[in-house]
């Protein structure tokens, strides 16, 4: 064996620090290859010792925390800002934190119910801010914010937009939870989504008052239909990657979004 071949064989070893008997035999009688083997061994040692800076954001700890927490839906919920309070707001906040999932469902249902009154001619009522302030769960915050937006809406357009935003946020939240939350929670989210789309958006789109110009009505419904299509596509895509028990909920969201989108487009064309 010539020296070039020996040196190439050394570099092709699983570990150049562990020479085969043939290579060792050659290096015993060849100073150049012996030196090369020692350099290759040193390189291997240095490579294995290359330091790496610590990860900057503690995402490992966050993920471990998420995985070991008993109720993943409560993951983003921060601790109460104040402690030791016994007031109604404090107790309500504690209750909502413990029951954020159910509370969000109630808020979603309330949203739809409020939406049913959208063509009433009453002027918008001021909403007590205290109610919204006690919510600490991000999803619940969003639902309540939509509730407030809907109740304050001065026009049918604003009310329909609030319902569309609600659907979009529920779908987004479900997608965010899909990889971590148990299937039961996702099914609950899918139920709310269906309710917002089927019992809120679709019937309300058919009840737009006649004084809304046709072009404005078509543009609004088309915009919301497009968002529903995006929800459907995103849920479909994710259902291919999500855990098996999350897939039925994602499919329900996709179906409800597709169905809602078709109906809104039909309404936009005046075919409802």
């Amino acid at each position: 064996m010539n020296c070039d071949a020996v040196q190439n064989l050394i570099l092709a070893l699983p570990d150049p620090r562990e020479l085969t008997p043939e290579l060792r035999e050659h290096t015993r009688g060849c100073a150049a290859c012996a030196g090369f083997a020692r350099r290759a061994a040193k390189l291997e040692t240095v490579l294995a010792a290359l330091p790496v800076p610590a990860a900057p954001e503690g995402k490992k700890a966050d993920l471990l925390d998420d995985l070991t927490r008993p109720d993943p839906m409560m993951l983003p919920m921060p601790a109460a800002r104040r402690s030791g309070g016994n007031g109604v707001a404090e107790r309500a906040a504690r209750f909502l934190r413990r029951n954020a999932g159910a509370a969000a469902g109630l808020a979603a249902a309330a949203l739809i119910a409020v939406g049913g009154l959208w063509f009433a001619t009453r002027p918008p009522k001021p909403i007590p801010d205290e109610l919204a302030k006690v919510q600490k769960h991000p999803l619940l915050d969003k639902v309540v914010a939509r509730d407030v937006q809907l109740a304050r809406a001065a026009s049918p357009t604003q009310k329909l937009e609030a319902l569309g935003g609600m659907a979009e946020e529920l779908a987004g939240e479900a997608r965010g939870m899909a990889r971590l939350a148990p299937g039961a929670e996702l099914r609950q989210m899918a139920g709310w989504y269906e309710k917002v789309v089927r019992d809120g958006l679709v019937p309300q789109s058919a009840k737009l008052p006649p004084h809304v110009p046709a072009a404005e009505k078509a543009a609004l419904l088309q915009t919301i239909a497009t968002k529903l299509d995006a929800d459907a596509a995103a849920a479909d895509k994710l259902s291919g990657e999500a855990p098996q028990d999350a897939q039925p909920a994602l499919k329900r969201i996709a179906d409800a979004a597709r169905d809602g989108g078709q109906k809104l487009r039909a309404a936009a064309r005046g075919g409802n």
Binding site: L11, R17, G35, F36, K42, T45
Partner: peptide, 17 residues
């Protein structure tokens, strides 16, 4: 092995197994 200067990986260091 080509780009690292030989003096930084001295052949005298005995890491060989």
């Amino acid at each position: 092995m080509k780009v690292i200067p030989p003096e930084l990986l001295p052949a005298g260091a005995g890491d060989e197994g």
